[in-house]
Amino acid sequence: MEGITINNPENLIECKTILDWISAESSVLDLGCGDGELLSLLIKKKRVQAQGIEINQQAIQNCIIKGLNVFQEDIDSGLSDYPEKSFDYVILNQTFQQVKKPAFVLEEALRVSSKTIVGFPNFLHLSSRLKMCFGGKVPVTKSLPYKWFDTPNLHFFSIADFIEYCKTKGIKIEETVVISKNKKVRVFPNIFGEIGLFLLSK
């Protein structure tokens, strides 16, 4: 599972948003931290106490090169060891749609953290809708770049789906930022937003 790539300027708003949400010198657990770019940035800018969880061997090595603490574990089962509120923040950025049991993982993330950050691609972005309606095929877009047969994404949902889910589960949405083309989307986010970022608590 890949985390955020800061070398890619298109992700900058995502990074900035997460940086804004996280308070200095807090403790952060990044689920599916990839090469550890986001965690390194958080340490540099916010002096956080960082821990990553990642399954990919090569990504782990890249984390170790950066001096990060990382566990080679499955996100789906990696949180059970932690007692409640072990971290100030748990981050599930671009990995939430890839876990086997998203409901369970989100519940666990909320249990072990004070606040949970979730970021995912909006499956019902305008370009996806058009490709589905008129192309007759599963959409391949910038935020959903994979073909149907080799996608790591296991769950497809929209920003509206996620907001509704949080309501039914009593999860408090503290902040929402919807992004498209590295800009914040303010009107019709479920149509024009490529990426949804949420700051949650329970």
Binding site: Q57, I60, N69, V70, F71, Q72, D81, Y82, P83
Partner: peptide, 13 residues
């Protein structure tokens, strides 16, 4: 983890 020790874990194939 429980003792909050800075830890890295690798399960090598």
């Amino acid at each position: 983890k429980l003792a909050r020790v800075k830890t890295t874990y690798c399960d090598i194939s």
